[in-house]
Design a protein around this nucleic acid. Structure first.
Length: 274
DNA sequence: GAAATCTTTCCTGCTT
DNA sequence: TAAGCAGGAAAGATTT
Protein backbone atom coordinates (compact mmCIF):
# COMPACT_ATOMS: atom_id res chain seq x y z
CA UNK A 1 0.00 0.00 0.00
CA UNK A 2 1.64 3.13 -1.12
CA UNK A 3 -1.09 5.67 -0.67
CA UNK A 4 -1.82 7.01 2.74
CA UNK A 5 -5.05 8.83 3.17
CA UNK A 6 -4.17 12.35 4.08
CA UNK A 7 -7.57 13.97 4.02
CA UNK A 8 -11.08 12.74 4.28
CA UNK A 9 -13.22 12.67 1.20
CA UNK A 10 -15.82 14.82 2.88
CA UNK A 11 -13.41 17.59 3.63
CA UNK A 12 -12.14 17.52 0.10
CA UNK A 13 -15.54 17.72 -1.39
CA UNK A 14 -15.84 21.13 0.15
CA UNK A 15 -12.23 22.20 -0.02
CA UNK A 16 -10.28 20.61 -2.84
CA UNK A 17 -12.76 19.41 -5.36
CA UNK A 18 -14.15 22.11 -7.57
CA UNK A 19 -14.88 22.54 -11.25
CA UNK A 20 -11.37 23.89 -11.64
CA UNK A 21 -10.07 20.49 -10.64
CA UNK A 22 -12.26 18.73 -13.09
CA UNK A 23 -10.67 16.38 -15.49
CA UNK A 24 -11.53 17.30 -19.03
CA UNK A 25 -13.40 14.10 -19.49
CA UNK A 26 -14.99 14.08 -16.12
CA UNK A 27 -18.55 14.41 -17.28
CA UNK A 28 -18.30 11.00 -18.80
CA UNK A 29 -16.86 9.34 -15.81
CA UNK A 30 -19.72 7.75 -14.03
CA UNK A 31 -22.98 7.88 -15.93
CA UNK A 32 -24.36 4.41 -16.05
CA UNK A 33 -21.68 3.03 -13.83
CA UNK A 34 -23.72 2.47 -10.75
CA UNK A 35 -26.52 0.90 -12.66
CA UNK A 36 -24.23 -1.15 -14.84
CA UNK A 37 -22.20 -2.67 -12.07
CA UNK A 38 -22.97 -4.57 -8.92
CA UNK A 39 -26.48 -3.30 -8.27
CA UNK A 40 -26.28 -4.53 -4.67
CA UNK A 41 -22.86 -3.08 -3.97
CA UNK A 42 -23.44 0.61 -4.33
CA UNK A 43 -21.49 1.64 -1.30
CA UNK A 44 -17.79 1.79 -2.04
CA UNK A 45 -17.08 2.05 1.69
CA UNK A 46 -17.88 -1.63 1.96
CA UNK A 47 -15.96 -2.88 -1.01
CA UNK A 48 -13.34 -5.53 -0.60
CA UNK A 49 -9.91 -5.05 -2.16
CA UNK A 50 -11.07 -7.19 -5.03
CA UNK A 51 -14.02 -4.93 -5.65
CA UNK A 52 -11.77 -1.89 -5.59
CA UNK A 53 -9.75 -3.47 -8.36
CA UNK A 54 -12.87 -4.30 -10.26
CA UNK A 55 -13.96 -0.72 -10.03
CA UNK A 56 -10.54 0.40 -11.27
CA UNK A 57 -10.75 -2.01 -14.16
CA UNK A 58 -14.24 -0.84 -15.04
CA UNK A 59 -13.34 2.84 -15.01
CA UNK A 60 -10.31 2.15 -17.16
CA UNK A 61 -12.47 0.20 -19.58
CA UNK A 62 -15.05 2.93 -19.78
CA UNK A 63 -12.39 5.43 -20.74
CA UNK A 64 -10.48 2.99 -22.88
CA UNK A 65 -7.38 3.62 -20.86
CA UNK A 66 -4.67 1.01 -20.85
CA UNK A 67 -4.72 -0.65 -17.44
CA UNK A 68 -0.96 -0.80 -17.46
CA UNK A 69 -0.82 2.97 -17.14
CA UNK A 70 -1.71 2.84 -13.47
CA UNK A 71 0.02 0.73 -10.84
CA UNK A 72 -2.72 -1.45 -9.38
CA UNK A 73 -0.56 -2.09 -6.34
CA UNK A 74 -1.14 1.53 -5.39
CA UNK A 75 -4.74 0.55 -4.81
CA UNK A 76 -4.09 -2.38 -2.55
CA UNK A 77 -6.77 -1.06 -0.24
CA UNK A 78 -10.34 -1.78 0.63
CA UNK A 79 -13.30 0.44 -0.08
CA UNK A 80 -13.22 2.17 3.26
CA UNK A 81 -9.62 3.25 2.71
CA UNK A 82 -10.39 4.14 -0.89
CA UNK A 83 -13.08 6.55 0.23
CA UNK A 84 -10.61 8.23 2.55
CA UNK A 85 -8.19 9.11 -0.24
CA UNK A 86 -7.91 12.73 -1.17
CA UNK A 87 -7.84 14.19 -4.62
CA UNK A 88 -4.09 14.57 -4.27
CA UNK A 89 -3.82 10.96 -3.16
CA UNK A 90 -5.50 9.87 -6.36
CA UNK A 91 -3.15 12.04 -8.43
CA UNK A 92 -0.23 10.58 -6.55
CA UNK A 93 -1.42 7.02 -7.01
CA UNK A 94 -2.71 7.17 -10.58
CA UNK A 95 -1.22 10.27 -12.19
CA UNK A 96 -3.39 11.79 -14.88
CA UNK A 97 -6.05 9.15 -14.34
CA UNK A 98 -6.37 10.26 -10.73
CA UNK A 99 -9.06 12.90 -11.34
CA UNK A 100 -11.19 10.38 -13.20
CA UNK A 101 -10.95 7.93 -10.36
CA UNK A 102 -11.59 10.59 -7.76
CA UNK A 103 -14.70 11.81 -9.50
CA UNK A 104 -15.94 8.28 -10.04
CA UNK A 105 -15.59 7.33 -6.41
CA UNK A 106 -17.20 10.57 -5.30
CA UNK A 107 -20.21 9.91 -7.43
CA UNK A 108 -20.42 6.33 -6.31
CA UNK A 109 -20.25 7.33 -2.70
CA UNK A 110 -23.08 9.75 -3.13
CA UNK A 111 -25.26 7.42 -5.13
CA UNK A 112 -24.47 4.69 -2.64
CA UNK A 113 -25.66 6.88 0.18
CA UNK A 114 -28.95 7.30 -1.60
CA UNK A 115 -29.39 3.56 -1.92
CA UNK A 116 -28.37 3.00 1.65
CA UNK A 117 -31.22 5.07 2.89
CA UNK A 118 -33.57 2.64 1.21
CA UNK A 119 -31.61 -0.36 2.33
CA UNK A 120 -31.66 0.65 5.93
CA UNK A 121 -35.35 0.07 6.01
CA UNK A 122 -34.45 -3.56 6.29
CA UNK A 123 -31.15 -3.62 8.13
CA UNK A 124 -29.93 -1.65 11.06
CA UNK A 125 -26.29 -0.86 11.49
CA UNK A 126 -24.80 -2.38 14.57
CA UNK A 127 -21.26 -2.51 15.74
CA UNK A 128 -19.69 -0.62 12.90
CA UNK A 129 -18.48 2.90 12.93
CA UNK A 130 -20.16 3.59 9.67
CA UNK A 131 -23.58 2.80 8.36
CA UNK A 132 -24.59 -0.54 7.01
CA UNK A 133 -26.67 -1.24 3.95
CA UNK A 134 -28.48 -4.24 2.58
CA UNK A 135 -25.58 -4.66 0.26
CA UNK A 136 -23.10 -4.94 3.02
CA UNK A 137 -21.20 -8.18 3.05
CA UNK A 138 -18.08 -9.06 4.94
CA UNK A 139 -15.05 -11.03 3.96
CA UNK A 140 -12.29 -12.42 6.08
CA UNK A 141 -10.41 -9.45 7.46
CA UNK A 142 -7.40 -8.51 5.45
CA UNK A 143 -8.26 -10.92 2.69
CA UNK A 144 -9.15 -10.10 -0.85
CA UNK A 145 -12.45 -11.17 -2.27
CA UNK A 146 -12.56 -14.86 -2.85
CA UNK A 147 -15.50 -15.75 -5.02
CA UNK A 148 -15.48 -19.30 -3.75
CA UNK A 149 -16.17 -18.24 -0.20
CA UNK A 150 -19.71 -17.08 0.40
CA UNK A 151 -19.93 -13.68 2.01
CA UNK A 152 -21.10 -13.50 5.58
CA UNK A 153 -24.29 -11.59 6.06
CA UNK A 154 -23.74 -9.36 9.07
CA UNK A 155 -27.14 -9.76 10.65
CA UNK A 156 -27.97 -13.26 9.60
CA UNK A 157 -25.16 -14.93 11.46
CA UNK A 158 -22.50 -14.19 14.03
CA UNK A 159 -19.98 -11.56 13.08
CA UNK A 160 -17.06 -12.70 10.95
CA UNK A 161 -14.75 -11.93 13.78
CA UNK A 162 -16.43 -14.34 16.13
CA UNK A 163 -14.21 -17.27 17.11
CA UNK A 164 -16.78 -19.78 15.91
CA UNK A 165 -16.90 -18.35 12.44
CA UNK A 166 -13.15 -18.08 12.27
CA UNK A 167 -12.78 -21.69 13.31
CA UNK A 168 -15.32 -23.01 10.86
CA UNK A 169 -13.86 -20.87 8.09
CA UNK A 170 -10.42 -22.22 8.82
CA UNK A 171 -11.68 -25.79 8.96
CA UNK A 172 -13.52 -25.41 5.71
CA UNK A 173 -10.47 -24.12 3.90
CA UNK A 174 -8.14 -26.71 5.34
CA UNK A 175 -10.39 -29.67 4.81
CA UNK A 176 -11.27 -29.12 1.18
CA UNK A 177 -8.52 -26.89 -0.04
CA UNK A 178 -5.23 -27.39 1.72
CA UNK A 179 -3.75 -24.42 -0.10
CA UNK A 180 -6.82 -22.34 -0.36
CA UNK A 181 -8.54 -21.86 -3.67
CA UNK A 182 -6.93 -23.59 -6.60
CA UNK A 183 -6.27 -21.66 -9.73
CA UNK A 184 -8.97 -23.37 -11.73
CA UNK A 185 -11.47 -22.69 -8.96
CA UNK A 186 -10.41 -19.09 -8.86
CA UNK A 187 -11.05 -18.86 -12.60
CA UNK A 188 -14.33 -20.72 -12.32
CA UNK A 189 -15.56 -18.47 -9.56
CA UNK A 190 -14.78 -15.34 -11.52
CA UNK A 191 -16.86 -16.79 -14.34
CA UNK A 192 -19.68 -17.70 -11.98
CA UNK A 193 -19.84 -14.22 -10.48
CA UNK A 194 -20.51 -12.03 -13.52
CA UNK A 195 -21.41 -9.06 -11.34
CA UNK A 196 -17.91 -9.23 -9.91
CA UNK A 197 -16.27 -9.96 -13.21
CA UNK A 198 -15.93 -6.72 -15.16
CA UNK A 199 -14.81 -8.19 -18.41
CA UNK A 200 -11.89 -10.27 -17.21
CA UNK A 201 -13.02 -13.66 -18.47
CA UNK A 202 -16.13 -14.57 -20.40
CA UNK A 203 -17.98 -17.68 -21.38
CA UNK A 204 -17.60 -18.61 -25.01
CA UNK A 205 -19.79 -21.65 -24.76
CA UNK A 206 -21.42 -21.90 -21.36
CA UNK A 207 -22.92 -25.42 -21.74
CA UNK A 208 -19.60 -26.77 -22.98
CA UNK A 209 -17.56 -24.98 -20.35
CA UNK A 210 -15.54 -23.01 -22.87
CA UNK A 211 -14.28 -19.64 -21.71
CA UNK A 212 -11.89 -16.99 -22.86
CA UNK A 213 -9.58 -14.60 -21.09
CA UNK A 214 -10.39 -11.05 -22.08
CA UNK A 215 -7.81 -9.41 -19.84
CA UNK A 216 -5.22 -12.04 -19.28
CA UNK A 217 -2.79 -9.72 -17.52
CA UNK A 218 -5.43 -8.40 -15.16
CA UNK A 219 -6.48 -11.92 -14.22
CA UNK A 220 -2.85 -12.82 -13.62
CA UNK A 221 -2.47 -9.76 -11.41
CA UNK A 222 -5.53 -10.75 -9.44
CA UNK A 223 -4.26 -14.28 -9.04
CA UNK A 224 -0.88 -12.98 -7.99
CA UNK A 225 -2.60 -10.68 -5.55
CA UNK A 226 -4.45 -13.60 -4.06
CA UNK A 227 -1.25 -15.58 -3.74
CA UNK A 228 0.78 -12.64 -2.50
CA UNK A 229 2.93 -12.87 -5.57
CA UNK A 230 3.45 -9.52 -7.24
CA UNK A 231 5.49 -11.07 -10.04
CA UNK A 232 2.69 -13.22 -11.35
CA UNK A 233 2.20 -12.97 -15.10
CA UNK A 234 -0.18 -14.50 -17.57
CA UNK A 235 2.66 -16.61 -18.88
CA UNK A 236 3.11 -18.24 -15.50
CA UNK A 237 -0.59 -18.49 -14.89
CA UNK A 238 -1.10 -20.16 -18.25
CA UNK A 239 1.60 -22.70 -17.44
CA UNK A 240 -0.30 -23.65 -14.32
CA UNK A 241 -3.46 -23.86 -16.41
CA UNK A 242 -1.76 -26.24 -18.82
CA UNK A 243 -0.92 -28.60 -16.00
CA UNK A 244 -4.65 -29.07 -15.58
CA UNK A 245 -4.86 -30.71 -19.00
CA UNK A 246 -3.16 -33.81 -17.70
CA UNK A 247 -5.56 -34.03 -14.77
CA UNK A 248 -8.52 -33.38 -17.05
CA UNK A 249 -9.58 -30.38 -15.07
CA UNK A 250 -9.15 -28.44 -18.29
CA UNK A 251 -9.24 -29.55 -21.90
CA UNK A 252 -7.28 -28.09 -24.74
CA UNK A 253 -9.02 -25.85 -27.20
CA UNK A 254 -6.84 -26.03 -30.27
CA UNK A 255 -6.13 -23.04 -32.39
CA UNK A 256 -7.76 -20.47 -30.17
CA UNK A 257 -5.70 -18.13 -28.06
CA UNK A 258 -6.69 -17.42 -24.49
CA UNK A 259 -9.46 -20.00 -24.73
CA UNK A 260 -9.80 -22.89 -22.29
CA UNK A 261 -12.42 -25.47 -21.55
CA UNK A 262 -13.36 -27.14 -18.30
CA UNK A 263 -12.70 -30.84 -18.27
CA UNK A 264 -14.46 -33.81 -16.73
CA UNK A 265 -12.70 -33.36 -13.39
CA UNK A 266 -13.68 -29.74 -12.98
CA UNK A 267 -16.60 -29.32 -10.64
CA UNK A 268 -19.10 -26.63 -9.99
CA UNK A 269 -19.03 -24.74 -13.26
CA UNK A 270 -22.13 -26.22 -14.82
CA UNK A 271 -25.43 -24.45 -14.34
CA UNK A 272 -26.86 -27.77 -13.24
CA UNK A 273 -24.19 -27.94 -10.50
CA UNK A 274 -25.71 -25.01 -8.70
C1' DG B 1 11.55 -35.47 8.08
C1' DA B 2 9.49 -37.66 3.91
C1' DA B 3 6.15 -37.86 0.52
C1' DA B 4 2.60 -35.89 -2.09
C1' DT B 5 0.44 -32.17 -4.24
C1' DC B 6 0.09 -27.87 -6.35
C1' DT B 7 2.13 -23.86 -8.06
C1' DT B 8 5.90 -20.99 -9.71
C1' DT B 9 9.80 -20.05 -12.48
C1' DC B 10 12.58 -20.60 -16.40
C1' DC B 11 13.35 -22.36 -20.65
C1' DT B 12 13.08 -23.77 -25.76
C1' DG B 13 10.53 -24.31 -29.71
C1' DC B 14 6.42 -23.64 -32.26
C1' DT B 15 2.24 -21.11 -33.90
C1' DT B 16 -0.70 -17.23 -34.81
C1' DT C 1 8.09 -9.13 -34.24
C1' DA C 2 5.15 -9.84 -30.39
C1' DA C 3 2.15 -12.56 -27.97
C1' DG C 4 0.50 -16.83 -26.84
C1' DC C 5 0.80 -21.93 -26.56
C1' DA C 6 3.00 -26.39 -25.34
C1' DG C 7 5.49 -28.88 -22.33
C1' DG C 8 10.04 -30.28 -19.84
C1' DA C 9 12.62 -29.49 -15.76
C1' DA C 10 13.46 -27.92 -11.32
C1' DA C 11 12.33 -25.76 -7.20
C1' DG C 12 9.28 -23.66 -3.66
C1' DA C 13 5.37 -23.88 -0.52
C1' DT C 14 2.23 -26.34 2.00
C1' DT C 15 -0.21 -30.24 3.84
C1' DT C 16 -0.52 -34.99 5.37
Amino acid sequence: MSVTPSTTLDSLLTASWSPRNSYSDVSMVTPGYTSRLWPRDFQPQFWSKFQVWEWLQQVMDMHQIDTSTIPFQNFDIDGHQLCSLSYQDFIHAAGSVGPILFHSITELKWSGQYHVDAGQLELKPESKNYSCSFSDVSYPPGDIFDPSIPPVAPLASPTPSSPDIKRSFSRQVKKHNPRGTHLWEFIRDILLNPERNPGLIKWEDRPEGVFRFLKSDAVAQLWGKKKNNSSMTYEKLSRAMRYYYKREILERVDGRRLVYKFGRNARGWRESDK
